[in-house]
Design a protein around this nucleic acid. Sequence first.
DNA 1: TCTGGGGTCCTAGGACCC
DNA 2: TCTGGGGTCCTAGGACCC
Length: 366
Amino acid sequence: MDAFYASVELLSRPDLRGRPVAIGGRGDPARRGVVTTATYEARAFGIHSGMALSIAARKCPECVFLPVDFERYRMVSRQFKAAIAQVTDAIEDRGIDEVYLDLTPLQAGSHALALTLQKHVLEATGLSCSIGIAPNKLIAKIASDLDKPRGVTLIGRDDISGRIWPLPARKIPGVGPKADARLIELGIATIGQLAACDPAWLCKQFSPRYGLWLHRAAHGQDDRPLDLNPEPRSRSRETTFQNDLHPVRDWQVLAQTIAALAKQVGEDLKKRGYRGRTVGIKLRFSDFQTITRDRTVDTPLDDGTSIRRLAFECLGRIALERPVRLVGVRVGELSPADDTADTLSGPSAKAPPRSDEGTLPLFDDE
DNA sequence: TCTGGGGTCCTAGGACCC
DNA sequence: TCTGGGGTCCTAGGACCC
């Protein structure tokens, strides 16, 4: 979807069309938050997603800032996916504003299919999208980005050297800021230059796996099938404080926040029918250093009380010596709640007992 | 007044087991 | 003066994506 959150907001605020608009945080650039989406007018001022709201406001004082409304975006997301489902049900969900489709079995030509999809999405939501059609997910994803907004880009195997190789290596999904910076250091700026590199040399510069993947990606090779029904791996909630917490003076606030997050994660898990064996917490300090602690137990759980107890145990293993900016609670190693195989028997039942199992030496507030 | 929230996957080291 | 090899699980951190 093109500039998804911003485009959704403009549906109800047509008066803002043509003006620089940025969506993020609570819509107040004086408060903590980042730009999630900027309209193309705002992008012209150098505003982009991930940028601090305060910096965006400095770059463009006339920019309009709106708060994020995830509930609404999720609703529109369901609408556009339902519109696409009229064309194909081979849909891999890639989050709120993206999907992969397998159009292989369809009879119509690629370009006609793309126009049909855009028409369905526009009629269902009033919003535009950009489409890339290619022999695999990797190239389709790159292609979808080449002609935004409202683009349709077709790339065949024979087009890879002509259309893909001139692009910056950073355009490969999976090459982020760190890998790109390292590539630049190594004198590699384009995908074509990456494709010319010896894979063994790339493996030496990066990890063996990543080096091999880089080489294959640069040659447009990708054999990942669509994942039509991915199982969730973890569930988490986190929050950034408007003002950093003093680790001692504000301990109550920290504890209450963790308890509330634990409760929410538990409710999320129950609603979706999952339990998890690993409970973890995340703390971000004022210097932006982020640390995590987690704890795995034998029996999967989904109740807020157990999650909170384990979260507090994790908290007890962290030295609270700096102001705390963010706290989060996570449950991982998920399994369906109706799958009782692991809870009744199995290897875990024979695991040696842990002396501190279930105890809460420091922070027991029950 | 710089830097959200919710995810996935990978790496590396240590414990532990055979 | 020496101390294997292979495997799994857990933990912590980090890169990356939407």
